[in-house]
């Protein structure tokens, strides 16, 4: 079975730096981005199984990236990570097409559980 390809996008480097090894340890292939414009370029070339993205970022925000990614590859599952305060607005404004939401700060085990569920869906289990 192929490794799941995951993109992580968050403008705070610590989120990327911590998620990458944690997800790699779980057996996934992980690319991380702190600039949403770079991430946007990347999805034009690479198809990801899962995209984990923050919402509020300078320049292109998570919403735009999500829309673009879904357009290019509807199979891609998107997990939105956002601050606790903006959680409800996030859920309201676009539940469509988002696999799940996670409020920051979150435990490593929480995101792993969500990614596992996304994987099960992708693999049709």
């Amino acid at each position: 079975m192929n490794k799941l390809k995951i993109m992580v996008l968050d403008d705070e480097p610590i989120v990327c730096k911590r998620l990458k090894p944690a997800l790699e340890k779980q057996g996934y292939e992980v690319d991380t981005f702190t600039q949403s414009s770079d991430a946007m370029e990347q999805i034009k070339n690479v198809e990801y199984d899962v995209i984990i993205t923050d919402l509020k970022m300078k320049g292109i925000d998570g919403m735009q990236l999500l829309t673009e990614a879904k357009q290019r590859s509807p199979k891609t599952e998107v997990i939105v990570i956002t601050g606790f305060a903006t959680m409800e607005t996030a859920k309201e404004s676009f539940h469509k097409g988002v696999f799940d939401f996670i409020a920051k700060p979150f435990k490593l085990s929480e995101i792993q559980e969500v990614v596992s569920r996304a994987e099960a869906k992708i693999r049709g289990e």
Partner: peptide
């Protein structure tokens, strides 16, 4: 608890 490393937090969390 957050300083124990089991959570992923960002600067915004600290500011808030």
């Amino acid at each position: 608890e957050k300083s124990g490393g089991d959570y992923i937090f960002d600067r915004k969390y600290l500011v808030d």
